[in-house]
Amino acid sequence: MPTTLHKVACIICAHASQGGALRPNTPDLPVSLDKVQVQHIAALARLRVADDEIAETVDKLSRIVDFVAQLSQAATDDVVPMAHPLNQVQRPRPDRITESNDRDRIQSNAPAISDGFYLVPKVLE
């Protein structure tokens, strides 16, 4: 049975009432995650993690978080964060049309369309 939005929301609420799902925890970063945290992260990432995948996901994500937490030991005072390897600036381009409308071709990959529109479940009641 799928996890619905309601269920996800309930998980977030329940955890928030316990003092916050993802309580900032610096300088000592958490070295493991629990099931509720993982479900919260999955909800933020719009991923359903099946019930039989949860335990393994908690275990492996905890190992990863534990591993990357060693970064906290690095001395980085006054180090400018590096976002990009070549420190490039974004290049503007001339404001002219370069592509033609290729809607039918592009929509041939869509799971569900109608009259050139993408179909999704009803959003507004």
């Binding site: 999955a42 990432a45 990357v68």
Partner: peptide, 19 residues
């Protein structure tokens, strides 16, 4: 999925600076 969740976690409120 693990990588997406790791990324979501390190970018989430309260953890962005630390990670």
């Amino acid at each position: 999925k693990r990588r997406i969740m790791t990324g979501t976690y390190v970018l989430s409120a309260g953890y962005y600076d630390a990670y």
